[in-house]
């Protein structure tokens, strides 16, 4: 009866796999784009995900943090993460140099509902770091452009310096198959030619067909209700406003309890919630 059994390592949902930092690229003062590849070539090949999902990143000896994937599964190979330096793990990530080892596990969460979005018009609304999970979707849509309808991208940041992916934005601005609208809250350097104001000011003079458009929103926590109010006033039904929300998280697989809101777990049922779900979960937005 005194049997010894070994934990099934392959089935360990908490098992981080070694990955290497391939390159890092500073996007703004406190925000950097990191590109990782799994150490094990099989793992690197097998790993796929949906736009809007996230991974748990471990920095050896420091800890683990949930981070949205910013790359698109249509361009396999590297896993790109946009990270702002705000805490212990993100600080340590910023100190890593190329070829450094990290632990990765995932992908987790529901992601953007690609099947529902096909053949629909899309309004992508990003604020600040909110571009991270939306860049994944945006590049997915651009790589399958014929499968989606009209595309509008509205992106706001605190200052022109805080706009992420400026080189990519320049390319987007030159395309004729989408409308790119940018705004900054303030322009301290006086070099900004575009609109000054919060992201909702970009709606001015724009027409949407709320019955065939999905609004895809990721903005700072305080801004969700303002964006939702604008969309609701324009006739968007709650289930056509999709929001990527954040919560403090530990395990990523619905066990630790941290990201629980109402009867949902942000890690399992989110991070993408419809506005309808969000207003029915007390304290969600």
């Amino acid at each position: 009866m005194l049997e010894r059994k070994l934990l099934p390592m392959m089935g360990n949902v908490y098992q981080p796999r070694l990955a290497r930092l391939v390159r890092k690229h500073q996007l703004s003062g406190d925000t950097t784009l990191f590109a990782f590849r799994f150490e094990d070539p099989d793992q690197a090949r097998r790993f796929t995900y949906r736009p809007g999902q996230f991974v748990e990143v471990s920095v050896l000896g420091v800890g683990e943090a949930p981070i949205s994937i910013s790359s698109t599964p249509t361009r396999p190979g590297l896993i790109e993460l946009v990270v702002r330096r705000v805490g212990r793990v993100t600080d340590a990530l910023h100190r890593l140099e190329p070829n450094a080892a990290v632990g990765l596990r995932g992908p987790y969460g529901n992601g953007w509902p690609i099947e529902k979005l096909r053949h629909q018009d899309l309004a992508i609304i990003a604020g600040g770091l909110g571009m991270a999970p939306l860049r994944s979707l945006l590049n997915y849509v651009l790589d399958n452009r014929a499968e989606f309808g009209r595309l509008v991208v509205m992106y706001g940041a605190r200052t022109p310096d805080d706009l992420l992916f400026k080189d990519e934005l320049a390319d987007l601005g030159a395309r004729s198959d989408l409308d790119l609208l940018l705004a900054v809250d303030q322009d301290p350097t006086g070099t900004w030619n575009g609109r000054v104001g919060v992201v909702t000011t970009l709606f001015e003079g724009r027409q949407f067909d709320p019955q065939r458009t999905y609004a895809l929103v990721c903005v700072p926590p305080v801004a969700f209700k303002y964006v939702a109010a604008e969309l609701t006033q324009r006739g968007f039904p709650g289930e056509r406003i999709l929001m990527s929300l954040e919560r403090k998280m530990q395990c990523g697989v619905g066990k630790c309890g941290y990201c629980n809101v109402g009867h949902k777990y942000t890690c399992l049922d989110g991070p993408v919630f419809s506005y309808w779900d969000a207003i029915n979960l007390p304290g969600m937005i």
């Binding site: 009866m1 049997e3 010894r4 059994k5 070994l6 934990l7 360990n12 981080p16 050896l60 000896g61």
Partner: peptide, 18 residues
Amino acid sequence: FSVDRGYEVPEEIASVHR
């Protein structure tokens, strides 16, 4: 965990007595 071997479940944890 270690830099060389990554994250491993220690054997004394992985084995459980009846």
